[in-house]
């Protein structure tokens, strides 16, 4: 019972970065848990992927080539992964916490009787036992989880929590046949997200959103202008759309749009209700500008400015020469 097994996640022939993060995490745990670090690649044509995972602390790559694994299929993956785990008895199995692993990890953990936790962003080894940390209650608390009586543990790792490993390595690569398993679902097609035009909150990488703090309809236009000048899409909270100050298509939140592709979200004069957060709390870089230092928006912001949005906006315009 030792070593770390990582399942490679790939889609449309490309390895997903999250796999490199899992390898990075394994590198930091290898000393405490004991090697080897093994990556399992299940695919119709595993060779190029095997190369892509030959990085960092990886000692061994196992490939399983199956025509029915041209795309991810949970029942096929389950059979293969379980048979590899049964043979190798790793102390820790890692996979990214992603849409594919949702339908795989529970079946493997239950089937093999592994300790199990998902969306984990911290892993420690204490007295040889794995302890995982994840968040609960909408990120408001952290939860430490242990696995009494379990000899192996399966964790799915939250994206962005572990540094990806990219340094090339030369692990042993071996191809095996593993698991029977038959597909019970059939891939038909991919559909890429629709091209965007006009007001596009879901597609915008940079959103500047205004809330009731804007005060008056007469102030709204200057924020359209500011957003324009900064290269941002203007979004808003619901009361702004409800008042008819901006069209509904700009509303971010539960009953509006999801800022799905946003990387920088500046919330001005928005208190941060759950419903608004629904549309934006996942954004990596949130800047909150609010005159109330207690506003809940600050609890999810990476940067906070306690101040008057109109003054800050005015300064931005001046310094950016938008005036």
């Amino acid at each position: 019972m030792s070593g770390i097994l990582i399942l490679a996640e790939h889609r449309r022939g490309t390895l997903r970065d999250a796999t490199l993060e899992a390898i990075g995490a394994a590198g930091t745990l290898k000393a405490a848990l004991g090697g080897p670090v093994t990556v399992l690649v299940i695919a119709a044509d595993p060779a190029p992927l095997a190369k892509a995972v030959s990085v960092g602390a990886v000692d061994e790559v196992i490939t399983v080539a199956r025509p029915d694994a041209a795309t991810y299929e949970p029942h096929v993956y389950e059979a293969v992964l379980r048979s590899v785990i049964a043979q190798r008895s790793p102390a820790l199995v890692l996979m990214p916490h992603g849409v594919d692993s949702f339908s795989l990890a529970p079946a493997v953990a239950i089937g093999e009787g592994l300790g199990f936790a998902t969306d984990v962003f911290g892993v420690a080894v204490e007295d040889g036992q794995v302890v995982a940390t994840r968040a609960g209650y909408n990120e408001k608390v952290f939860v430490e989880i242990d696995f009494p009586g379990r000899t192996g543990v399966l964790l799915t790792l939250r994206g962005g929590s572990f540094a990806p490993e990219t340094a090339p390595a030369s692990p042993a690569v071996s191809a095996i046949d593993a698991g029977d398993g038959t597909a019970r679902s059939k891939h038909l097609d991919w559909r890429d997200p629709p091209a965007t035009g006009g007001i596009d909150i879901p597609g915008s990488p940079f959103i500047l959103s205004i809330g009731r703090g804007v005060g008056d309809e007469a102030n709204v236009a200057q924020f359209l202008e500011l957003a324009d000048g900064l290269g941002a899409t203007l979004g808003c909270s619901r009361p702004i759309a409800d008042n008819g100050w901006l069209p509904k298509a700009r509303q971010v939140g539960q009953s509006g749009q999801l800022a799905a592709k946003c990387n920088l979200y500046i919330a001005m004069g928005i208190s941060g209700s759950v419903q608004h957060q629904w549309g934006m709390k996942h954004v990596e870089n949130i800047v909150a500008i609010n005159k109330d230092p207690e506003a809940s928006i600050f609890t999810i912001a990476r940067y906070g400015i306690v101040g008057d949005m109109l003054e800050i906006a005015e300064e931005l315009r001046k310094q950016k020469g938008i005036h």
Partner: peptide
Amino acid sequence: ELEGGLVECLDVE
């Protein structure tokens, strides 16, 4: 619905 808004269409038994 997969990461990044990509959609997979499939038949399930």
